[in-house]
Every structure is written in C-alpha cells, then in structure tokens.
Amino acid sequence: MSGTAMLNVNDLFVSYGQSQAIHGISFGANRNETVAVMGRNGMGKTTLFKALMGVLPLKGGKVEVDGVDLSREESFRRVAGGIGYVPQGRMIFPTLTVEENLKTGLENAKNKEIPEEIYALFPVLFEMRKRKGGNLSGGQQQQLAIGRALVTNPKVLLLDEPTEGIQPSIIKDIAKALNEIRKLREITIVVSEQVLSFALDVADRLFVIEGGRLVHESTRANIDADRIKQYLSV
C-alpha cells in the first residue's frame, strides 16, 4: 500500500479459538475516500471489523491509522488513535438518553459539549435527545450510532452493515449522511455491506470478501456489477 493511506491493514489474521476466520487480509484506504467491503453473511465482514476495532484480538498482521500502529491496543485507545466504530446491530446504550449516548463519545474531547454539527446531520436526534436510546426506532438508532461514533472525531469511520434491518427510505438518508460527513470532514470511511445499490451510492472502491479473504477489488467507475452480484447471491 502507498504511504499516504490513512488506514493501512496488512496481512490480518483472526481466529476464534482454533478456527481461523480471517486469512491474511490486506487493504488500504485514503483520506477522503470511502471503501465498501461486500460479502454475504458468514464471510467474515463483522469479524474483520471487530478485529480492526480491537474487540477481537489479532492473530497476526497490522492495523495502522495515520501511520500509527494500533494492532496491539485496546479498543478505547484505538478510539483515541482515530478509529470510530458503528457496530453491526447498532449497539447503542438502551438505558441512556440520546444525549447521554452521544456524550459517551466525548471521552477524548476537550470540550464536553455535543458538537452542533451532529444535530445538523441528524435533526431527529435533537428532537429525541431526552428519550432513552432503547425507545428509538431502528433507523433512529442507526443514526444515533453513527452520531456517537462521529463525536469521537475519527480519522477512520468503520460502519458494519449500517443498512441491516432498516427501511428503504432511511437507507437513502443514511447514504446521504455518509456522503455529507465525507464532504464535511474529509475522513476515511470503511463500510461493510450486502446491498450493492447502497455501496454504489457511497463508495469509491469496492472489495468483495469471501471465506475470510478479499477476492475482488474494483473502483466504482470500473465496476462489474454482475460479477459482484454473483458473489453476493446465495
């Protein structure tokens, strides 16, 4: 990978006990670039993202953000190192209010107030700010999870299947928000996806993951949609 990459993943290995799930994945992503990792269920998308975030330990390989090696760091240090994480299933804190959920991301911030930019991106969060997170709809929770990750001021934003279980109209909104975020902050976004149309809405480059390996890469301009669809079909 080139030295300018914001996120640099090199020869990543991950296992659950004896069984290896990720077999040597390498890729990079530049500043102000969105890449999508496409793949069916069980192909290793979530495992890859958990390993990038430090939720699962690496068996081997390297994760670098902005030239800093974070491979051995605990999750909370990776956040300080510039990784923001929107997990699969959203994982907002249901017992905390929307406002408190957002505030949890301010650990490393000097100013402990929620930036107005977040509410500008997701006005619904402002309306709901006193509600418990657990009482929001799926789409609202997804926006909350993205907002919470953005509050940490990441250089690299990881989103694990942000469209899963969300109604189509909200999917459009989320795609719009992601493009808006990239325009505003010029950060790197890595998103895992099964829905090709969503990936094409947001990503500059697409990878296909299968059986814990990256098996295909293409830019949006040169995409062979039929081939990717074949990978995604069951």
Binding site: V55, F76, V79, M91
Partner: peptide, 20 residues
C-alpha cells in the same frame, strides 16, 4: 456516564473510547 455506559454494554463502551 462511564459507569452507566459500561453497565449497559461493556464492549461497546470500550469501543466508544471509555477506559472500562
């Protein structure tokens, strides 16, 4: 806030930057 986030979801609290 740290305590309540950790009680709610320890892994996620760590992944949002809280030193659990």
């Amino acid at each position: 806030l740290r305590v309540r986030a950790t009680v709610s979801n320890r892994t996620m609290a760590n992944a949002i930057g809280i030193n659990t």
